[in-house]
Write a protein that binds this DNA or RNA. Structure first.
Lengths: 221, 221, 221, 221
DNA sequence: CAGTAAACGAGACGGTACGTCCCGTCTTATG
DNA sequence: CATAAGACGGGACGTACCGTCTCGTTTACTG
């Protein structure tokens, strides 16, 4: 009868919560390398013994602390693929610029490179971040804005790839103009090509989606 | 020609070379976090004292060890932007899949996130990796295959972004089919469209990478 | 009775004991300069971390290791000042010749010359060594074998001074004959001159011990 | 023919002199432990190489630096043993209180305890310091103020011992009053009574503590 | 006056020790 | 029985000095 959740000692819950909070704090401040069990213990008032009782290793603690990171962005519903994609993109870019997890992600990517358990975390995180894109993409297919044989993963790579690249590898700014340029380019080439009427469903009239025009605007800024 | 090189104490050269080699070894195996001066000293047979004589800090050693990493890929010259881009892309993808530095890059990105001196290294590494793309892009502009107001950085983001994303954030494979799809998509939207005369200089007649069909094929793969 | 002793962690006691023993060993062998924390750690099997946990510095460890040194010699009770002094002197001389602490004392004296915390140790050690002399001297005063205004410190300097000098500054042997000579000299000049009854309690009959008592005056100053 | 001194390279002389001076400086400031070859080199401007060229080891350098220490005090000639002894004693006490070598001596004593080469230095230093006492004592013997069978070493131990003890082992001050007390005591028991008339002013006839008594006995052994 | 041998500075090098920090394991005593 | 407190061995950190060892460069004597 007693639910498992209730049977858990209240002290345990309290300890875990405090520890995770402090871990997250340290994580944001100094990345994975900035988290030391000793420091977490010191700040949280929870003894090292207890921490190791609940998490078998520093990695395990980190994983759990990270798992609360990067909540999935709300799925917008603007009625058009273009609108949804733009909204999602601007949101993602904003997060990449400011969210705390964006500072930590490279540590996780790095750790995932060699520690399998962290690779799992990485995958999970990524899935959460991208869920909205998948939803939106599938919706676009349903609306026939997108060819049904399009692999959503490719669409996402084409959209999100440049943002991630811009955030972590290039030194160029990840500003809204850039984001919009990427979205426009993508729509051009990805959406169901103009139906017989020769009009692109995504491009408002007067925007001839001319190859050079599309992204140039974004780039000129 | 370079007497400076000769004037440097041979012992110094030997020590530095050995240390750098071992550092690189550890770096490849365990990322930045896997490099410890003590271990480098132990493996290289070079005393810690000597290591600190040549590099003021662990970061400095890492920087120098990394700086030999990721040599710029050779600039291809196939005669067309499409050809050059494809060649470069396939090469980059190959490296991302197999090169040792690809394993290390996330550590560097992460470290760059909070250590300024490592940020410099990061920028330098990136510049080296991207140099060929810049060259190729400029050449395309000269050939009028690319609008002159195109910012090469945006082109590169559109091309390389998906590769980096695929390598480190997504769990999807970074195979050649994907690369080719990206290139084709990119060319469609980025290249100078048909000049007034209606002829595309890059796409000879009959080239099947026709605007609308192109990307679909890439993605289908 | 003493719960404090019991309440101390048994591991701590064990660690401290082992470390102190090894420290004492090294101390005997190489003086204060011969004690290195690394070596103590190596020999004792106690980690450096633990050593520093218990003693904040090398000096602190040395102090504690030395503090067990040079136990106060038993106070003899032969019934006469002469007998007591002789017994104590022979004992001290024997220790100066053979005891391990005698090898170490100069290091301590030297260190005390410039490290205040070690100066405290020095004072304490000296007090312990000299306690018996003080006792015996006071007893002699009580028995009126010694003028009550005699400063025990002066008596002790006159007795012990030559022994220490002989041990560490001169190259002459510190043999029992020398010791006895010093004691006899000292008794002559230091003891209460014949009381009114003409009997000297310390000098056997026929040993009128310098009638003028000149030396007493010297010491009174 | 050319005297050795002249044949020595002037540079050598200069280097050695500079090094010795700086060594002495450090020696005074921090005792033997405060002398580091690196520091001597740094301050003197003489390279470590050169220092090691002239002295095979740190110990050797220290020995030579010390050897200029503690110049023999001038032999006083007041006409009486009592006067000479007082003058010498006050001088020695003054030096023990203030001279730089007095700070260093314990290091040397300590080192002598375990390094044979330093033991030689110690002996030499001691001999130099005590030379005046020997001279004065011998002169007293010649004047018949002192029994001819008195061992000067014992007299010196009785006099200098308390001074050294007071300086390094006791915490009591080594002031002039103390010194004078020691001298007076010593004279009482040590000097040959014999005035011209054959009467001893200090020792009434029949006093057994005469030559063969008190301290002579100690020495005869 | 040139040639040569010494003395020299500069500094690289492998070692050892320092004292601090964090790891992950463990033991003990308290609630 | 979860917990706080904390001892423990291990290992890395960056610094200091040790004594050894090339190097090239003055100096100063000698032929």
């Amino acid at each position: 009868m007693a639910p498992a959740d209730r049977s858990v000692d209240a002290r345990v819950q309290r300890s875990k919560a405090t520890v995770l909070a402090q871990t997250y704090e340290l994580l944001s401040a100094g990345g994975i390398g900035g988290v030391s069990i000793d420091e977490v213990s010191r700040r949280s008032g929870v003894s090292k013994t207890t921490i190791y009782r609940h998490w078998p290793s520093r990695a395990a603690l980190l994983i759990e602390a990270c798992s609360t990171i990067g909540s999935a962005p709300p799925v917008p519903d603007t009625g058009s693929f273009a609108g949804d994609l733009t909204a999602l993109s601007l949101d993602l870019a904003e997060q990449l610029r400011t969210a705390r997890w964006a500072v930590v992600l490279p540590s996780i990517v790095d750790a995932a490179e060699r520690e399998p358990e962290l690779a799992g975390l990485h995958a999970e995180l990524h899935a959460r971040l991208m869920a909205s894109f998948v939803t939106v993409t599938e919706r676009a297919k349903a609306r026939a804005e997108l060819a049904p044989d399009r692999d959503p993963a490719d669409v996402i790579a084409a959209i999100a790839g440049p943002y991630f690249y811009r955030r972590w590898f290039s030194r160029e700014p990840l500003d809204d103009a850039f984001v919009e340029g990427v979205v426009r380019d993508c729509l051009d080439r990805v959406c169901t090509p103009s139906p017989p009427d020769g009009h692109s469903p995504t491009s408002p009239p007067g925007t001839p989606h001319a190859p050079n025009g599309s992204s140039a605007g974004a780039v000129q800024s």
